[in-house]
Amino acid sequence: MTSAILHITNGDSTTNYLKSLQFTGDFITWREMLCEGKTTTDVGSETFWKNRFDFLKSSYKVSKQKFINYTLKEYRSLCNKKETKEIVLWFDHDLFCQINMIGVISWLKTYRKGYHISLVTNGQIKGSKKLKNLSELTENQIQQHFKNRIDLTEDDIEYADYIWQLYCSESPLRLETVYKYNPMSPFTHLADALSAHLQRFPSIKNGLNHLENTILETANTHKFSSKNQLVNQLLKTQTTYGFGDLQYEHHIEQLHKLFTSFNPVKLSRKGKKVLENQLNFYGELRDENLYLGGAKKYSFLFNNESEKLLQITS
Rank of each mutant, 00 (worst) to 15 (best):
T39A: 13
P183S: 06
D12K: 03
S268N: 08
S225W: 10
L230N: 00
F302T: 01
Y241S: 04
L292K: 10
D151C: 12
F187H: 03
S225Y: 13
V265R: 09
L258P: 11
G207H: 04
T39G: 08
A4C: 07
E176N: 10
T14V: 08
N133L: 14
N80M: 05
K205E: 14
S63R: 00
M1T: 15
T24L: 07
W164S: 13
K126S: 15
L230Q: 05
S13N: 03
Q144K: 12
L230Y: 04
C97T: 11
N51D: 14
S77N: 07
H145D: 13
G242R: 04
T138N: 03
Q143R: 09
F53T: 13
A191Y: 11
Y75L: 04
L290V: 13
P186F: 02
V120F: 01
L216K: 10
K296W: 01
N220T: 06
A4F: 07
D92G: 09
F91I: 01
E307W: 07
K126E: 15
A295H: 07
L95N: 05
K61I: 14
E305I: 10
A193M: 07
N220Q: 14
S63V: 07
Q124G: 13
K272F: 05
Y248R: 05
K82N: 15
A196K: 13
T41E: 11
I312E: 08
R200W: 03
K129D: 15
S3F: 05
D26P: 08
L301T: 08
T153C: 01
A191G: 12
I252Y: 00
T177Y: 06
S203R: 04
E305L: 11
I105Q: 09
L310T: 15
T177V: 13
Y282Q: 12
Q124A: 07
K227M: 09
Y181W: 13
D26E: 14
L18C: 11
T239E: 03
I163R: 05
E288M: 11
L309G: 08
M1A: 14
N206L: 10
H116L: 15
S171K: 00
N122M: 06
A191N: 13
Q199A: 12
L285G: 10
S171L: 09
E86W: 05
F27V: 13
L279W: 06
Q229F: 02
L258C: 12
Q22R: 11
G44L: 02
S135T: 07
Q165F: 11
F187K: 00
S314M: 06
K205C: 05
F259P: 14
I102P: 14
E217P: 09
N228M: 04
S268R: 08
F262E: 04
M33A: 10
K81E: 15
L95A: 02
Q229H: 05
E170N: 09
Y75G: 08
E249Q: 13
L166G: 10
E176V: 12
L279P: 00
H210S: 14
